[in-house]
Nucleic acid binder design. Structure first.
Ligand SMILES: [Mn+2]
Ligand SMILES: [Mn+2]
Ligand SMILES: [Mn+2]
Ligand SMILES: [Mn+2]
Lengths: 242, 242
DNA sequence: TAATATAATTAGTCAAGACTAATATTATAT
DNA sequence: ATATAATATTAGTCTTGACTAATTATATTA
């Protein structure tokens, strides 16, 4: 469910042409704020060129953005001049950066992603988290990092879990061991009856992606299975020489 | 760091005017796929009107979207006809819905948000998660829901944590108890020396938002503190009659 | 079957946010 | 102090994905 801002009504006469102030910042504008703030922490003079480089865009785009952000009272900026944040602007930037930080910690320290990917993910998601969700998640990250006990347990389990695939993701000719079967209803029961059990070795005979069914063998039995069903069978691919 | 798609080069002569196929789906297009799939699970005939209603947009927007999705080979659709998903389209929709599901579980069952907010958050974030992050997070949710032991501990701690604020979020006249002080460097040391200790009661005397400093009292001492410092003091507001 | 109501499409507009090309300003080097 | 280089701005274009108004096609009802 989405709320899209109503926009572009040509008959809205109270035009208030500069709708600038007060409407929430778009993800892109938030990134401008965040990155200007970061640049200001490193150098005390920030130029259009610096922002363009950091955000990997061209200078005219930056100029346009700065004009909007100035209208909103978030940056101090005069033509051809240097860029500063207003008090309000700093608040905004800090709020965003805080989300960036705990999200990064979450992806890095809890989910075990490497620094760069973690940062990237964080910098995308930060613009879409409600403040309630942010609070809760921030608490959660703090909490989890204190209880290092079982987080160890989790991390070690994660590594092997990441080697797992779904049967439907295997390619023709691949072999794999069944790790577990998702679901709980009659579907799971049927799969068990067909011979899909934990530990069994599967060999994919024929698999045309998107075309049902997949043909496989389990200890010399030939079986056909629909993609949809294969989707809920978790396997661990075997190296070729097994 | 962002990658923006390069766009709008008027001199790109290999125009390939229908750049349609193969470029990744935008968040909005992903929502179309997801919701069409949901509608198809309930009714076996899906009309433009249904999609418009579900997504809370107008019919012409839907028509335009369907034309694009058809170009990309994701929907079966003829003018004035009913809407179906292609095999590829189903795959796409399922992938998105899977993210939607475990994200919802995360916000609901781990962070304790109510169903509706959890769904909303999930449906925003689902479009921005890499497949690696998705995998890890899905594993994490599964793992966490099995170890109900300490998740209990966490949930109960969360409730009280959500009553907490930062000193910088209090309004003039409010009283609060210090819960803890964030950070670790010399800043924290200085705050402790000033008398900010766990359990102390704070009374905010004067606070003009965005204007340093904040004036407060701790057991009859008057103190001034900068917003930035107040930001790292976690407090629990007291009811008026305390 | 004809008249009406509902549903869907087209045409044209708008805002955001990127881009290029051309121009203007400021900084640096001779 | 001037010439050149580096930066920044304007003007105009493009795509995406909304919107309204007008038109066309399909369904329903008399
Ligand atoms: Mn970001
Ligand atoms: Mn960020
Ligand atoms: Mn969504
Ligand atoms: Mn969703």
């Amino acid at each position: 469910m989405r709320m899209r801002r109503r926009q572009g009504n040509p008959f809205n006469v109270n035009a208030n042409s500069s709708t600038s102030i007060d409407t929430p910042l778009s993800p892109n504008m938030e990134d401008y704020m965040e990155n200007i703030s970061m640049l200001l922490k490193e150098h005390d003079v920030v130029r259009v060129k610096d922002i363009a480089k950091k955000l990997n865009i061209k200078m005219p785009s930056v100029t346009a953005a700065l004009q909007k952000l100035k209208d909103k009272g978030l940056v101090d900026y005069e033509k051809y001049g240097h860029v500063q944040l207003t008090a309000k602007g700093k608040e905004v930037a800090d709020t965003i950066y805080e989300k960036h930080s705990f999200l990064t910690e979450f992806f890095k320290d809890i989910l075990g992603m490497d620094t760069q990917e973690a940062e990237q993910q964080a910098c995308k998601l930060e613009h879409h988290l409600s403040s309630d969700a942010s609070n809760r998640m921030q608490r959660f990250v703090e909490f989890y990092k204190q209880e290092q006990l079982d987080s160890q347990q989790w991390i070690s389990r994660l590594d092997s879990a990441l080697e797992e695939k779904r049967l439907s993701d295997l390619k023709e000719g691949e072999k794999a061991e069944i790790v577990r079967i998702l679901g709980s209803g009659p579907l799971k029961k049927r799969l068990l009856e067909m011979g899909f059990r934990k530990g069994e070795i599967i060999h994919v005979i024929k698999y045309a992606p998107l075309k049902d069914p997949i043909e496989i063998s389990i200890k010399d039995f030939l079986l056909s299975i629909r993609v949809e069903e294969a989707h809920s069978i978790i396997v661990k691919p075997l190296k070729n020489h097994d």
